[in-house]
Design a protein around this nucleic acid. Structure first.
Length: 188
DNA sequence: GAGCTGATTGTCT
DNA sequence: GACAATCAGCTCT
């Protein structure tokens, strides 16, 4: 699938989080010439006890009620940044891992390591490698400085499983990934 | 206003 | 396999 401007991008994200989470596998995501192919995502919906939006809108989760395709960036455990793509109001998809494709030298520099498999295999690592922080909160993912291109992965290669690191709604299999990819944060 | 929690990661055993 | 680091935002008093 070819490049998509803001209009088509909005249509892509204005769907159920589960559909967007699966559809994002195989897409290309970058920032200032640094990025790669999305290989792992998780879906969060308003009726989901594990979602930041479960208890309604607050100053922190306000971007989750913004336009579809908006970036929701929040700090996790006081240390790390996590990047989400906003879908329908109150729902979002957490980008958990990408396969480094371009700007790899800069990723290695930011991460302070040479092992490509560890550059972006986790939400915190991914944000560190791409240089994403709170200043990118609220920005549209389909417009500069973000670079976004849709590309559907082979449906047969996409696998699903339980989400990672949660204490609530742990049984929902709302995590999606490229089966067998060495760039996943964890195996399925 | 005080206390608690977490969509994580890196390091040590 | 277990745990410390670290803090914004939420809940409860």
């Amino acid at each position: 699938m070819a490049d998509a401007g803001p209009g088509p991008a909005r249509d892509f994200f204005a769907r159920d989080a589960l559909v967007v989470a699966r559809g994002l596998i195989g897409a290309t995501l970058g920032l200032y010439g640094v990025g790669g192919i999305v290989v792992e995502t998780e879906a969060y919906r308003p009726d989901d006890p594990a979602s930041h939006a479960y208890r309604g809108r607050t100053p922190r989760n306000a971007p989750m009620y913004g336009a579809p395709g908006t970036a929701y960036v929040y700090r996790s455990y006081g240390l790390h940044w996590c990047l989400n793509a906003v879908c329908l109001p109150g729902s979002a998809v957490l980008i958990r891992a990408i396969q480094p494709q371009f700007g790899v030298a800069q990723m290695r520099d930011r991460r302070g390591m040479d092992d490509d498999r560890l550059l972006c295999s986790g939400p915190g690592r991914l944000c560190q490698a791409l240089g994403i922080d709170g200043s990118h909160n609220w920005l549209p993912l389909a417009e500069p400085p973000f670079e976004f291109a849709f590309s559907m992965a082979d449906p047969a290669a996409v696998v699903s499983g339980r989400r990672v690191g949660l204490t609530k709604a742990v049984d929902f299999e709302w995590r999606f990934g490229l089966g067998g990819s060495p760039y996943l944060s964890r195996k399925f």
